[in-house]
Design a binder for these strands. Structure first.
Length: 477
RNA sequence: GGCGCCGUACCCAAGUGGUAAGGGAGCAGUCUGCAAAACUGCGAUGCAGCGGUUCGAACCCGCUCGGCGCCUCCA
């Protein structure tokens, strides 16, 4: 039984989908006018993992994640660069796929764009006007919050409180300061579509209502996004959708916490953000390893809380991963007996139970990772007793299949040492093996000068030698 | 002004009534020609502070201190 924290009720609840065995989930994606930063990465990753775990639990997941491809910021960016809005959005949608791909975030099953749903948006807006929940002023259409009784249900705010805090210049034509645009009339040169109210474009919030209803139905299961979207974006989505359909909109609302730098929210205005591609570019590690480090780091804190990004935190993730991949490397070595085999199935069962319990409890990834770390410890002891080939394969497979849910532990090659080993390989494996054989011979002859020289030579290339008790050595880089 | 979040060992981080998961660092040990690596073991009698409820509290209630977020585009 999966339990999740529902922002709407403020409580952890049992998750029961509307249609058995099927989950319909909508997550607010990004506005494509710039490169994604770690905050975007966290959000995408969190919902990617939730989706993976739901699938692992036997659900069919209809997962929609949108691209906002018409917006003030896009228009501004296009004007600054003297290109069309289409060029801006195409560029950053591609960048999104590139960056998220490196992080192992799977594409959603449905990835709608606002510009491809103008007809749905216009229709929804018309419905709201007909129902008396929206009004037209010149070529603009606004949603009238005062007419919608439940406004503030998600963010737990009262209209009066909001009014008191409003600090922004209010458009005089609006009936209430919190009224928000469903449709904006177009200024010359802006992207525009025909509508009953003249040429214009959709407001921000309406697109998510239109697209989620179109692809998932009027009532669906999960709606997600960053904490900062709770108000006003998701509050407005609820008002529009419920106002238009008269039905419940999303039943469970999930919001992820922020990525912070030195305890402060990462944001463009503070200038304290790191883009995903910047991190990959600066990384001394190969791409797939950097991706896994980042994933491990981002999942090592529960999705609901804040998460401080720092070099130290990333290094710690790398260290933790080293221990796991070192184990995998030792599991890949020849059988060493069968004494440990008996204890394996119990360890695997214990791990799987703990892993599921953790994920069932509001997708508690740090506890799920702890379960896997526990298995590492178990296996190290069993390995000391001796494990057969089959047991070794089974153990590695367990890490692979459970790790699949988190997008971790899928790599066949791992780099332990950045010195020389981090970049493209130079010394061939055969050559390394040859040198190690020579060193083993030297050790037998007690020619330690020669043995140490070979060790130093390999170390200079980032190759770490581990001598075994029997005189042989294994190596890694 | 309104709404909300957080404060757990040197660092990161789970835990929301039954006596403190996990990781990193550190220390010790095993192994070893030495070393490295790896593995094993150790680690908070206490969970910002004070008071209260309870047989029992990191967890519930109250107050205080400290940090942060939202109310405006924002993952």
């Amino acid at each position: 039984m999966i339990k999740l924290y529902n922002t709407l009720t403020g409580k952890k609840e049992e998750f029961v989908p509307l249609v058995p065995k099927t989950v319909r989930m909508y997550v607010c994606g990004v506005t494509v006018y710039d490169y994604c930063h770690i905050g975007h990465a966290r959000s995408a990753l969190v919902f990617d993992v939730i989706r993976r775990y739901l699938e692992y639990s036997g659900y069919r997941v209809e997962f929609a994640k949108n691209f906002t491809d018409v917006d003030d910021k896009i228009i501004k960016r296009a004007n600054e660069q003297g290109v069309s809005c289409d060029e801006v959005t195409a560029k950053f949608i591609q960048a999104y796929y590139d960056d998220m791909g490196k992080l192992g975030v799977r594409p959603a099953s449905i990835e709608p764009k606002a510009t491809e749903h103008i007809a749905d948006i216009v229709q929804l807006t018309e419905t709201l006007i007909v129902k008396g929940l929206a009004y037209q002023v010149d070529g603009d259409v606004y949603f009238e919050v005062a007419k919608y009784g439940d406004y503030g249900r998600l963010s737990k705010r009262k209209l009066d409180d909001l009014q008191a805090g409003a600090r922004v210049d209010v458009d005089e034509r609006k009936r209430h300061p919190m009224d928000f645009a469903l449709w904006k009339s177009a200024k010359p040169g802006e992207p525009a579509w025909p509508s009953p109210w003249g040429q214009g474009r959709p407001g921000w919030h309406i697109e998510c209502s239109a697209m989620s209803i179109r692809h998932l139905g009027e009532t669906f299961d999960i709606h997600g996004g960053g904490m900062d979207l709770i108000f006003p974006h998701h509050e407005n989505e609820i008002a529009q959708s419920c106002g238009a359909t008269g039905k419940e909109f999303a039943r469970y609302w999930i919001h992820n916490g922020f990525v912070q730098i030195n305890q402060e929210k990462m944001s463009k205005s503070l200038g304290n953000f790191f883009t995903i591609r910047e991190i990959f570019e600066k990384s001394e590690w190969p791409e797939e390893i950097t991706g896994e480090m980042l994933r491990y780091f981002l999942l090592s804190t529960h999705y609901h809380g804040p998460l401080d990004f720092s070099d130290l935190a990333i290094r710690e993730a790398k260290q933790a991963l080293n221990g796991l991949y070192d184990l995998f490397a030792r599991l890949a070595e020849p059988a060493s007996g069968t004494k440990g085999d008996a204890g394996l199935s119990m360890a695997l069962e214990r791990t799987q139970t703990a892993f599921r319990a953790a994920m069932d409890d509001d997708f508690n990834t740090p506890v799920a990772i702890a379960a896997l770390q526990g298995l590492r410890s178990d296996l190290n002891k069993l390995l000391a007793d001796g494990l057969s080939l089959e047991a070794r394969r089974g153990a590695r497979e367990a890490f692979r299949s459970l790790g699949q849910v988190l997008g971790l532990f899928q790599l066949d090659r791992w780099i332990f040492n950045v010195e020389g080993g981090g970049s493209a390989s130079r010394t061939s494996e055969a050559e390394i093996e040859r040198q190690i054989a020579e060193r083993t011979e030297a050790k037998k002859r007690k020619d330690f000068t020669r043995a140490d020289a070979i060790r130093a030579e390999l170390a200079a290339q980032g190759i770490i030698i581990e001598d075994r008790p029997d005189g042989t050595s294994r190596w890694k880089r």
